[in-house]
């Protein structure tokens, strides 16, 4: 039988200097460049509409600074800062 291992290729690995979703301030908008993290995490996000090139807007942070509220594809969702750090974005006006 065949074993389906983890992906054999390497994705574009974001470097330290890339802008992360967690770097955006409330009211700022970004475009998704790359989603890191575990396979399950990536796919959960993609299924929820956080797809490559999707526009995402940081609405606000929770009273205790974490998690953050985002608007994507016309609906609101919430992510923890540690997870948002795995998402590379480019800032758009």
């Amino acid at each position: 039988m065949f074993n389906f291992k983890k992906p054999r290729h390497k994705l574009h690995i974001a470097d330290e200097n890339d802008l992360r979703l967690s770097d955006l301030k409330p009211g700022e908008k970004g475009r998704i460049v790359e989603i890191g993290g575990s396979e399950n995490f990536r796919h959960r996000l993609i299924e929820m509409g956080i797809t490559r090139d999707a526009e995402i807007c940081v609405d606000k942070y929770a009273p205790l600074r974490d998690p953050m509220e985002l608007i994507v594809k016309g609906y609101h969702l919430s992510l923890r800062g540690m997870d948002a750090q795995k998402i590379c974005v480019e800032r758009i006006a």
């Binding site: 998690p67 969702l77 923890r80």
Partner: peptide, 8 residues
């Protein structure tokens, strides 16, 4: 599981 929560 990762925290991905919809705010309906």
């Amino acid at each position: 599981k990762p925290f991905v929560l919809e705010l309906p």
